[in-house]
Structure formats: structure tokens, C-alpha cells
């Protein structure tokens, strides 16, 4: 689900742009270092593929409805996380610019929710450890589905935290999470099935295309157990967060604090490698940022309430009359500009 400008505060929007911008800059630098000029057209065309594939609907087994591919996880499997993040960002940008999906300020949040989380969290922490070397269809299928579901759950949680942190809506965290997470469980399952179907097909038809990703640098292979541990930590964190959310409707800060605490507990075992440190940053980023944000939003809300006592008829009427006249003036401006042309 795309985050929208209308639900964002400038602070949250800017924070998410900073995070996504930093992630994109890092990925762009890694791609430049690889200096593989075959990647340039491949990334562009695969972005176009995701765009086209999003329009092909398939029947969801055992239901009457249909679904389609999102593409973040598939791109990570085909291109690796860095190229995939750049491609997904471009797909989201075109959707924002041409189809009004989200908006330009919300693009930062959307790149984070639908790009950084699947490419930098779900793919390395879940898909790779589960799918292994990609030769076992069963493991590939399981990896695709698990990584897609967890990736979309994290993304949905991102939307919830960004919305609640912005404070434009009155939706409490627990209610919104209870609404979004189950919906995205279904969307994640569809995404996982679609990804699985395509990866399994490519694995049969052109195993060499997938094998290219399998030849990862040796340093990464030795990190697998740590990555798996981090993956479990991420699942536990996510699970704990949603559990607290449902059982403690009013304990928003408390539950996030708990979750943030457990995310930090996982950190010391892993602070060895630069890559891992960044991954872990991505994992603990949400709790870290949402805690002060949510608390601040709650405070400002509490502080604002008494500041809104003036339910005066004069102000209300002046607002409505002035608003109508303003719209008329804008209309007039449009007519004048049109006349001048």
C-alpha cells in the first residue's frame, strides 16, 4: 500500500527521505564500484518488466479474487539488493509521477517501505538463508513466500508508524496496525506466490540467470549464520510488536520501547562487519525513529487540545466565507491566465 503525502507531516516525510536517500546513495555507490556496464540496461529493462508484470493479474488459489506481483523481492533475487533497490525506487517514482500513487514527499517513505525493507531486510535475512544455493525448488518456494510475507508485514508496519507518527489522522496505532497487518498478510502471500512461480520457472528454464547471483563474494557466505540470527530477531521483533499492539491498545510507547529494546539486544552479537551494521541499522531504524516521533506527536496532541477551545461561531463562519471567496479568487486567476494566453 502506498503512503500518501496527505497523511505525512514534514518531519516524518523528511526523515523517511533522508533514510531512503542515504540507502539509495549507498546502493548507487556500490553499483558504481561494481562497474558492470551490462547492469545499466538490465536494470532499466527489469524495472520495465516489473511495471508490465504488475498489470498481469492471476487467480489466487481457493479464492474468487485475483492478485499481481509487487516485485521488490523478485528484483532482489534477480539483481541483488543494491541494484534492486535502485530499480524499485524508479518504479515507485514513475508510479508517483504518472499515476498519483502516493506523492513526491511520500516517495521517500514508499521507497523505504517497499524497497529498503524487502531488498535490505527480507532478502538477505530470510530469502537467502532459506533458499540457500537455490537448487532446491522447495526451499526456493518457502524462501519466496516467507520473505515476501515478512517484507510486506514490515512495510505495512512502516506505513502505520509513519502515519501515526505524523499525527494527521486520529487513528490509534493499535487499531491501524490491526487493520493493516492482516490485509498485508494476504497481499504478502500473493506476492510470495507470484515471486515463487517466476523464480521457479526461471530456475528451470535458465538456471544460469539465477546462478549469477549465487556466486556471491565469500565474505558474505560466512556471515550466513549471523544473518539468520538477525532474521529470527527481526521476526521476533515484528511478532512481539504486533502482539503488544493487540493486547495493549493504549500502550503504544510502551510496546515500541519494548520492541526497540529487544532490537538493540540483538545488536552486540553482530557489530562486526560494515554491511551487517548497516543491515542492523535498517532493522532497528524503525523503532529508533518512531519512539521520539510518536511520543512527540502524542505530547503535541495533548498540548494542543486545550489550545483549541475557541469553538466560536465568528471564526467558523469567517473561515467558510473566506474559504469560498478564496476558491472563487483562484478560479478567477485561472480565467485571467487563460484569457491572457
Amino acid at each position: 500500500m502506498h503512503m500518501a503525502d496527505a497523511l505525512l507531516s514534514p518531519a516524518v516525510g523528511a526523515t523517511m527521505w533522508l533514510a531512503s536517500g542515504a540507502a539509495l546513495a549507498f546502493s548507487a555507490r556500490r553499483l558504481r564500484e561494481q562497474a558492470d556496464d551490462r547492469l545499466v540496461p538490465l536494470m532499466g529493462v527489469l524495472g520495465a518488466f516489473v511495471f508490465a508484470a504488475q498489470m498481469i493479474n492471476f487467480a489466487i488459489p481457493a479464492t474468487g479474487s485475483s492478485g499481481h506481483l509487487g516485485g521488490g523481492l523478485l528484483l532482489a533475487i534477480l539483481l541483488g539488493p543494491h541494484a534492486a533497490l535502485v530499480v524499485i525506487a524508479s518504479v515507485l517514482a514513475v508510479q508517483a509521477l504518472f499515476f498519483a500513487d502516493g506523492g513526491l514527499l511520500a516517495l521517500g517513505a514508499n521507497i523505504f517501505n517497499l524497497g529498503v525493507l524487502p531488498c535490505w531486510v527480507a532478502y538477505p535475512l530470510l530469502y537467502r538463508p532459506i533458499a540457500g544455493d537455490g537448487t532446491s525448488p522447495r526451499r526456493v518456494a518457502l524462501g519466496s513466500i516467507v520473505a515476501a510475507i515478512v517484507g510486506l508485514q514490515l512495510g505495512a508496519l512502516g506505513v502505520v508508524l509513519q502515519t501515526v507518527g505524523s499525527g494527521i489522522t486520529s487513528l490509534p496505532f493499535a487499531a491501524f496496525a490491526a487493520l493493516m497487518l492482516p490485509i498485508h498478510l494476504a497481499i504478502g502471500l500473493v506476492e510470495g506466490l507470484a515471486t515463487m512461480a517466476i523464480v521457479l520457472f526461471v530456475g528451470r528454464a535458465r538456471p544460469d540467470l539465477l546462478a549469477r547471483r549465487r556466486g556471491a563474494p565469500p565474505s558474505r557466505a560466512t556471515l550466513k549464520p549471523l544473518l539468520a540470527a538477525l532474521g529470527v530477531a527481526a521476526i521476533v521483533t515484528g511478532g512481539a510488536l504486533s502482539w503488544f499492539a493487540s493486547s495493549q491498545p493504549d500502550g503504544l510507547e510502551w510496546s515500541i520501547e519494548r520492541a526497540a529494546g529487544s532490537a538493540e539486544l540483538a545488536a552486540p552479537e553482530t557489530g562486526v562487519h560494515g554491511m551487517l551494521a548497516r543491515l542492523q541499522e535498517a532493522v532497528s531504524f524503525l523503532p529508533d525513529y518512531s519512539l521520539p516521533k510518536a511520543a512527540q506527536a502524542a505530547e503535541s496532541k495533548a498540548g494542543e487540545k486545550p489550545a483549541w477551545p475557541e469553538v466560536s461561531a465568528g471564526t467558523s463562519l469567517a473561515g467558510v466565507v473566506g474559504g469560498a471567496v478564496t476558491l472563487a479568487l483562484v478560479w478567477l486567476l485561472a480565467l485571467l491566465l487563460k484569457r491572457r494566453r
Binding site: R38, V45, P61, A197, I198, F201
Partner: peptide
């Protein structure tokens, strides 16, 4: 479109995309 047919359909589109990228390169 059933899921069992979706894989080959989207997969073929993907393979063509790969080949096209190669030609473009």
C-alpha cells in the same frame, strides 16, 4: 490466469526482458 500458468507467462516475459537487455547493451 491460474498460478501454475502465471509462472511460465510472466517468466517468459522476464526471459525476453533479459534477452532484450543483452541486445540493448
Amino acid at each position: 490466469l491460474a498460478l501454475s500458468a502465471y509462472g511460465p507467462l510472466a517468466g517468459h516475459l522476464l526471459l525476453r526482458a533479459f534477452e532484450r537487455a543483452q541486445r540493448i547493451h
